[in-house]
Amino acid sequence: MPIDESRVFTPIQIALLTISDTRTLADDRSGDTLAERVTAAGHVLKAREISKDSVETILGHLHRWIDDPQIDVILTTGGTGVTGRDVTPEALEKVQDKAIPGFGELFRWLSFQSIGTSTIQSRACACVARGTYIFALPGSTGAVKDGWDQILVHQLDSRFRPCNFVELMPRLLEK
């Protein structure tokens, strides 16, 4: 992937939300994996929390972070499957101004390389909400690695060419 070394790297402020009825910060392997990758890439992990699989609870976290000018991006892990308790995409639908359908499409295409047709069970998705990017990844460590290593590490790097999400941030709220 083309990184333009002549450009300055711009670290962004990221909040990480693990969505699970059973995980705690002590045993959140996917959250740990994502947190390590965020900081290793040079970004700032501003907040990290666990949320129950409840649309209203998830919305509480999302609204608070969307309204925080110190947070540019929210990453979620978990709750993107098809069971009754998997409600992360429904929560994102309630806050989004614009969907980013290509993220989920690309995630599933990449995931197919690892897990074959089982990727069809993923509802990974992304959106922009009041000027904040939100990316929802599945809860497995493999999915978190795929999503970060193959998509987000590049799109959240201001030096990535031909374009990236960071360079669009100043214009997200334009009318």
Rank of each mutant, 00 (worst) to 15 (best):
R29K: 15
H43I: 00
A136T: 05
I74F: 04
R23T: 11
Q121W: 11
T22E: 13
F112R: 09
A99L: 08
M1W: 14
A40V: 00
A99W: 05
Q155C: 11
S30W: 01
A40I: 00
H154F: 14
G116I: 10
T24N: 09
M1S: 12
S158E: 13
H61W: 15
L75T: 03
L17A: 01
V73T: 07
A15F: 01
A91C: 02
D97G: 15
K52R: 11
P138D: 06
V144S: 10
T80P: 08
E49D: 12
Q150V: 01
E5F: 04
T88S: 15
T33D: 13
D157K: 03
I100F: 09
T24G: 11
D86Y: 14
M1N: 14
T10H: 10
Q150S: 00
T83P: 09
M1H: 14
I115E: 10
E36V: 01
Q150T: 00
T39L: 01
Q155S: 10
M1I: 10
V153Q: 15
I3C: 04
V128R: 07
D32H: 15
S20M: 05
P101N: 04
L17Q: 03
K52N: 00
A136L: 09
S158R: 09
G142N: 04
H61G: 12
E167F: 07
R64W: 09
D157M: 05
L25Q: 15
L34W: 15
V95N: 10
E90D: 15
T80I: 14
Q113L: 11
K46V: 12
R161N: 13
Q113R: 14
T10E: 10
M169N: 06
H154M: 04
G81Q: 05
